[in-house]
């Protein structure tokens, strides 16, 4: 809804403003302070990171020009490829699970029932809660002997799990926390899409005797698809960068079983102080994220386009 309405607002104001352009006020002074700040804390780090990535530099030692050595080292670094694989699994799971549950939650909270506003407010709370604080409590809940989760599992006859303490279950366990925290965001986005749905198709579908599933499958789902796509884009960007929860709960462990690129990057730069290599990793990571975002936006643009065509 937001992107659509802003898009139209943009073109409307554009048309209106083209007429009195000779007395168009000078707006640049409003932007300059922000440009300076953004230049200092955002653009400067980008450029500096690029420069550091072609240098060999461990903190406390002299830095020397290294050309592409850091990048070549990255390409042959098994630990990096492993972290890339962990990032991929984590991201896919941490997008799909919230997408599914968030859509379900949106469908529920879109309907009318008593206590809806309050319950929706409660549902949104995890997203705003401090990730580190949340992570600590989850760590206690995951505890194999004393944790409440294994107790709850025992009530339904499932044996104790090792959760974040086992190399095979650590990533799914982290995804569980991430899903718990970020499902509300998908819910809010989809809720925005549901609020904008037209009534008429549903009325005629009801007359034709469509059941609830058919209405969802053939009416709701295609119409909220653009919002789901927005949800996928935002969630992917956030999940791939996820740091707080993973670092606070496992620091990439056990061993390196949950070490994502971001965690490996942190360890390289701030545990080993290998600034040059860490910067190269940051550059590659940045390129991966940008590529992913553009790929997803292309999919979205194409979806919109074919949508227009059928109309």
């Amino acid at each position: 809804m937001a992107s659509v309405s802003i898009e139209t607002a943009r073109t409307e104001t554009g048309d209106k403003r083209s007429k009195p352009s000779r007395l168009a006020p000078n707006y640049w002074p409003f932007v300059v302070p922000a440009l300076i700040v953004i230049g200092a804390v955002i653009v400067f780090p980008w450029v500096f990171t690029l420069w550091m990535s072609v240098n060999s530099w461990t903190l406390g030692q002299a830095q020397t020009f290294a050309g592409l050595d850091n990048y070549i080292r990255l390409a042959t670094d098994f630990r990096f490829w492993e972290s890339l694989w962990h990032t991929l699994i984590f991201t896919v799971l941490a997008v799909v699970a919230p997408l599914f549950l968030g859509t379900l939650a949106a469908l529920i909270f879109d309907a009318q029932f008593p206590g809806r506003g309050f319950l929706r407010g409660v549902f949104v709370m995890p997203m705003m809660a401090t990730p580190v604080a949340i992570a600590l409590v989850w760590t206690m809940m995951f505890h194999p002997q004393l944790g409440v989760l294994n107790y709850l599992l025992s009530l339904v006859g499932i044996g104790p799990q090792e959760w974040i303490y086992n190399r095979y279950s650590v990533i799914p366990s982290l995804v569980l926390v991430e899903t718990w925290q970020w499902t509300p965001l998908i819910m809010l986005i989809v809720l925005g899409g549901l609020a904008a749905l037209p009534r008429e198709p549903y009325e005629s579908a009801e007359i034709d005797g469509a059941n609830a599933w058919q209405k969802f499958r053939y009416l709701t789902l295609p119409m909220i698809a653009p919002f789901l796509m927005i949800g996928v884009i935002i969630r992917s960007i956030d999940a791939i960068k996820s740091f707080d929860i993973i670092y606070a709960m496992t620091q990439g462990g056990p061993g390196t079983a949950s070490e994502t690129i971001n965690i490996y990057l942190y360890n390289t730069a701030f545990s080993y102080y290998d600034i040059g290599y860490g910067s190269a990793m940051a550059v590659v990571f940045f390129v991966i994220i940008i590529a992913l975002s553009f790929a997803l936006m292309m999919v979205r643009a194409r979806a919109n386009w074919s949508d227009m065509e059928t109309r």
Partner: peptide, 17 residues
């Protein structure tokens, strides 16, 4: 793009600064 950039890649250069 700033929103997409991982926080850590701001941290290394600013830490040095």
């Amino acid at each position: 793009i700033a929103r997409m950039t991982p926080g850590l890649s701001f941290l290394i250069p600013l830490f040095l600064l």
